[in-house]
């Protein structure tokens, strides 16, 4: 267990370091920042002074070291567009995104668990068809398009739910469903196949044979075992949820970090994108680490 923990930690830190290198040097591929920040007719000595002031005349490795040092101390620089410290821009947006992600994952689980169980219990019947349809559709429906269709139906035509913004609980429904869509589809499939497998197992037959009520067999004996794979699946899906939040938040104009990425992309606000990518990567890598470790706790067989 300790060996696994240490390996994963080292790996996570290494991954984060790779991200930082990529992010830093990608800024230098297209040339020195002075080209973008100085007027084109600036005199050579002004340029030299500018370079000296920001340390751009030092070797790249030194620049990287200083940049990394600042980042580790929480200084991600200023956004070009808003002239505000990147961290201050990201903070509240990140909270909004996490709220939406929580709602999305909860909605996905609330939909997929009953549906998956129902599909497995009534195999081949109506609900099973629905579950299979959702499972297949999950991979092939691009979430941004699903978002637009939902807006078209529920906001534009039926005028039931608000299409954009954030405020009441109603604002959470459409973006939450869209964000959770991938998880709904995948988890429905997993619950269904897991239940089918378990319902066939000896201990379930035994429970039935000794006269346990059918609902009890399904909820206690079968579902609990089918859930293990779902837990790890949802953990791994968090990375994907965060990535698909870019398109979802863009469509629903949700004031989250995904929307912030999109805005930054539009105006090519480089420091902001850099900051978001670093923080986001750290979150994803940390979540992956947690899932890995949780998996090791749940399933002793992989603790090698």
């Amino acid at each position: 267990m300790w060996k696994l923990l240490v390996t994963r930690m080292v790996q996570a830190i290494f991954t984060l370091w790779v991200v930082s290198v990529v992010v830093f040097f990608s800024a230098r591929i297209t040339g020195s920042p002075e080209l973008a920040l100085m007027p084109p007719d600036a005199r050579p000595e002004d340029r030299a002074a500018f370079r000296a002031m920001y340390g751009l005349d030092r070797p790249l490795m030194v620049q990287y070291g200083r940049w990394l040092n600042r980042v580790l101390h929480g200084d991600l620089g200023q956004g070009i567009q808003h002239k505000v410290a990147v961290l201050e821009l990201i903070g509240p947006r990140l909270v909004n995104s996490l709220k939406l992600a929580t709602v999305g994952v909860s909605m996905a689980l609330a939909l997929s668990l009953p549906l998956g169980v129902l599909a497995a219990v009534k195999r081949g019947q109506f609900w099973d068809r629905i579950a299979m349809g959702i499972g297949l559709g999950g991979q092939s429906l691009p979430s941004f398009w699903l978002a637009l269709i939902l807006v078209l139906i529920f906001s534009v035509r039926l005028k039931l739910l608000p299409a954009t913004g954030m405020g009441t609980w109603k604002h959470y429904i459409l973006p939450g469903f869209t964000l959770g869509w991938f998880i709904t589809a995948g988890a429905t499939r997993l619950v269904r196949s897991g239940m089918l497998e378990v319902l066939d197992a000896e201990f379930v037959k035994l429970a039935r044979a000794k006269g346990v009520a059918e609902q009890w067999v399904i909820c206690k004996h079968a579902l609990r075992n089918a859930l293990i794979s779902v837990v790890t699946f949802v953990g791994f899906m968090f990375g994907i949820v965060i990535a698909s939040s870019i398109t979802t938040e863009t469509v629903f104009v949700w004031p989250g970090i995904g929307r912030l990425v999109f805005e930054a992309l539009l105006v090519r606000d480089f420091p902001l994108i850099q900051g978001i990518v670093l923080i986001w990567s750290a979150i994803i890598i940390f979540l992956n680490l947690l899932v890995d470790l949780a998996y090791g706790v749940l399933d002793p067989r992989i603790r090698v």
Partner: peptide, 23 residues
Amino acid sequence: MRFVDIMLSFPAILVALVFVVTV
């Protein structure tokens, strides 16, 4: 295999966005 593990947990789509902006 370490590299593969890293790639699978790497938020590549985000890093890709950085490249799209710079390049």
